[in-house]
Simulated assay, not measured.
Amino acid sequence: MELLSYMRLFVEVARTKSFRGAAEALDMPNSTVSRHISELEKAIGLQLLHRSTRKVELTAAGEVYFKRCQSIVEEARIAHESLLDVVERPSGTLRISMPVDLATGHLAPLLSDFAKAYPLISFEFDVTPRRVDLQSDPFDLAIRIGPLPTTPSTLVARQIALLPRYLYASPDYLKAAAQLTHPDDLTKHVLCIGQALTNQEEAWRTFYRGEEEVNVMIASRFRMNSVGLSRALAVSGVGIAVLDTDLAHEDVASGRLRRILPEWSLAPVPVHAITDTRLLPARTRLFIDFIKARLN
């Protein structure tokens, strides 16, 4: 049991590259972490860490040991937490990174329902579009909209939803704008594109109507990494926004937005739950399954 505890400390130091960071994460004195790591190195007979006043780095032996210890410590944690499944009372803190538009537009009511269903779970939400490092940042999972990240290959992605996308504009904008009866007409309109920023002011967009496809080169005057902001701009009459039905629902119901070219749609955008391991504690697995079922 002592060896497993030392391995857990080592994994946390290797993940954070800091004795202080590991001590804070594990809620124990910095000196205790340092002493136990030294005892582990003495027992193994190899130096696992290069220590300096500025940073901590893994030695070659430490790299090998870290890869093996990660899975051992994770499996031990899962085995312990799986006992909670037996009594159906998962607990602990669930740490999730998610974009603000998804959090406020889709997940807020679902989070409330999940919290009621599992009262022993507490939550920490990091609402940001940034690509968090799940191997070093203290998150159980990240929920992201759009294409999967290409690196690192060790990440595990589970698709939990497909969000349909349509075009919306305000009545005031439509009164003053050029005629709009076909996707080709969009070249004469102002678009507010709320997706990941790129250096391209113009991009091809594919629109679908049944089996029919139309590719249109669209210039977007307003580009941003926030679907919520593009929705707000559309409501104010600035231009046309690409939104999914849930996000646009209230504005359509109140008359602030209208769905335009209703027979046409863009390709749905995938939503993924991303973790750094397939071995998930009960609270993380239950949350992913719950969100996937409700979003679908």
Score class of each variant (00 low, 15 high):
L40Q: 02
E81D: 09
T104R: 09
E74R: 15
E41R: 10
C69T: 15
S91M: 11
E39W: 05
S91H: 11
D101E: 09
S82C: 06
S38Q: 12
R54L: 10
L48K: 02
E39V: 03
A117Y: 00
V33E: 01
T53R: 13
N30A: 10
V33R: 09
G45M: 06
V86Q: 12
I78Q: 05
L110A: 00
L49A: 10
G92T: 07
R77N: 09
P129R: 06
I121D: 11
R89M: 15
E57T: 08
E81M: 10
A60G: 07
Y65K: 03
T93Y: 05
E81L: 15
P119I: 07
L94R: 04
T93H: 05
G45P: 07
A103G: 06
L83K: 14
H50T: 08
G62V: 04
E74P: 02
T53A: 10
K67I: 06
S91E: 15
A76R: 00
G45W: 03
L58K: 09
S112N: 12
S91L: 05
Y65H: 06
V73F: 01
R89H: 11
H80C: 04
H50Q: 12
E63T: 02
L94H: 02
L49S: 14
E88P: 00
V87T: 15
A43C: 06
A61Y: 12
S97W: 01
E88S: 10
T59E: 07
G105I: 00
L46F: 08
S91K: 09
N30M: 13
R54H: 15
P99S: 12
K42A: 14
P129H: 03
S31F: 06
L94C: 02
L102Q: 02
R68K: 12
K116F: 06
R95A: 15
P119H: 02
A103R: 13
A79S: 15
L46E: 13
R68L: 12
L107S: 04
S122V: 03
Y65Q: 10
T93W: 03
S52D: 07
S112V: 08
A79W: 00
K116C: 03
T104P: 00
H36D: 12
I121T: 05
L102P: 01
E75N: 14
L46Y: 08
L110I: 09
S91D: 13
A79I: 07
E81R: 09
D85N: 13
I44C: 04
A76P: 06
A43Q: 13
A108K: 11
V87I: 14
I37D: 11
A60L: 10
T53E: 11
S34W: 14
E75F: 08
L58R: 08
A108L: 13
L102I: 03
V127W: 01
T128R: 14
V56R: 06
P90Y: 11
I37A: 03
Y65D: 02
L107M: 15
E81V: 04
K42M: 07
P109L: 04
E41L: 04
H80W: 05
E39M: 08
A115C: 04
I121F: 10
K67R: 14
I72M: 14
T32E: 05
I44V: 14
S82W: 13
L46R: 14
N30H: 15
M28V: 11
V127F: 04
G45E: 07
G45D: 11
E41W: 07
V127C: 10
P109V: 01
D113A: 06
R35F: 01
